[in-house]
């Protein structure tokens, strides 16, 4: 079976600084895959590479077997990959409802239509309402996204990411800055919403990582030093030395 995501020997340099070095990663379909690693290791850069935000200096990235390195983000998105951002990245002047609805429009086939009334599209309406329900923001539907609280914006960020129904979901530190209770709620949400889909998640909270992930990859200095099940990663001496330390014991 072809992997959902396959990264082969990808290198990325900014100027002459190599940030990603010989990156190899394979995420199977339906797998929940966590990427962990110290600050500045290149986790977000890896997301940017896979989602088309930046182009690799060399190497190849495949989505469901198809080469996507070199494609624009919207082309990759249309092929079934959707990502969230570490720093909240929403449509600030539009309402919560509109934010989610915009993310639903392409996937429901309405594209650039200028001959349809957007309020008269039942499947769009229904799907938007469902997503709002899922992310617990129905009661805030008419508030501009820019006025939401931080935790609400993070939930909206997840909502926009999953709204299009992509088969591969990538979440970059979805719970960063959340309180303990908020994190728990967000994790339950992620678990439920990515049911039957492929998930790649960057997360610093180890309890979240080990609770959620089927497989874990450890990224250090732009290179994956270990990849395996949570047990394998826990027991891996290289990982212990480079990153986890006593944290997991």
């Amino acid at each position: 079976m072809t992997a959902a995501i396959e990264v082969n020997a990808v290198e990325k340099s900014f100027g002459n600084v190599a940030i990603i070095r010989d990156l190899n990663l394979s995420v199977a379909k339906g797998e929940r895959h966590a990427i962990i690693g110290p600050n500045g290791a290149g986790k977000s850069t890896t997301f940017n590479l896979i989602s088309g935000y930046i182009k690799p200096t060399s190497g190849e990235i495949r989505l469901n077997g198809e080469v996507t390195s070199g494609l624009r983000p919207f082309e990759i998105n249309r092929r079934g990959l959707s990502r969230s951002f570490q720093v909240t990245n929403v449509f600030a002047r539009m309402t919560v409802w509109e934010n989610v609805r915009c993310a639903v429009l392409w996937a429901t086939g309405h594209r650039y239509a200028f001959w349809k009334n957007v309020d008269n599209l039942p499947e769009v309406k229904q799907r938007t309402a469902e997503i709002l329900d899922d992310i617990h923001l129905s009661h805030r539907r008419d508030v501009p996204a820019g006025l939401l609280t931080y935790a609400e914006q993070r939930e909206l960020e997840i909502g926009i990411t999953i709204a299009g129904g992509a088969s591969v979901i990538m979440l970059d530190e979805p719970t960063a800055g959340m309180s303990h209770a908020e994190t728990e709620r967000a994790v339950a949400l992620i678990r439920r919403l990515t049911e039957g889909r492929t998930l790649v998640i960057v997360e610093h909270d180890m309890s979240v990582v080990f609770g959620l992930a089927d497989r874990i990859s450890v990224l250090v200095y732009g290179h994956i030093i270990a990849s395996g099940t949570p047990e394998e990663i826990r027991g891996n001496p290289k990982v212990k030395e480079a990153y986890l330390g006593e944290e997991v014991d």
Binding site: F74, N77, R78, V90, F91, C102, Y112, I160
Partner: peptide, 11 residues
């Protein structure tokens, strides 16, 4: 509002 994010919802 955010041309960058639009690229990640298919547009």
């Amino acid at each position: 509002d955010n041309p960058e994010r639009v690229e990640f919802i298919g547009y």
